[in-house]
Nucleic acid binder design. Sequence first.
DNA 1: TATTGGATCGCC
DNA 2: GCGATCCAATAG
Length: 191
Amino acid sequence: MKILPQNFYNHPAEIVAKELLGKILAVDTLQGLVTGKIVETEAYHQNDPASHSYGGKITDRNKPMFGPPGYSYVYFIYGMYHCFNVVTDRNGYGSAVLIRALEPLSGIEIMQKNRRQEKLKNLTTGPGKLAQAFGIDKKFNNLPLNSKKFCIYENNSRPHEIIKTTRIGLAKGADEHLRFYIKDNHFVSVK
DNA sequence: TATTGGATCGCC
DNA sequence: GCGATCCAATAG
């Protein structure tokens, strides 16, 4: 399988969010390799009140969003969870795609251990859960997604139907249709 | 320096 | 439906 090149990410978040569905996220954790298919994403950009990069204001936290595409942006939320994003669009423009749900492929025992959960459907069906299952924390922030230890692979599996709808869990900008998921996939967080 | 609320999850 | 739990942003 081929690692996605940097120019894959060098497009508006909305495009990349859609293109990322079906691709394979791989993380080499201390316990071994963990992989999963991306089944749900959300796009965030600079003119979006719900985005950390809103208004183009750069802070210590959101800095990676304004960097080159194809890098990770991991942040801590609600005192207990991490969320994993992929930086998109040109260098200097603050945008990213939040990975909201995955379908576990390999390293499932590692995910179960990290999550302290047996049930397959409880491992990666939400942004906080998948970060925990894959062992993604602040150490994974602002890294290029181009090494076998931490990357996203191309995937030539069967085509899937894509649903486009409103985003989840936001105070502002909730009405924008910037969420994408694979139709009928069992691992989508909210149908 | 103090306050406040959040791109969540799991249990009640 | 609500509490856990803490960091980042904002105000002062």
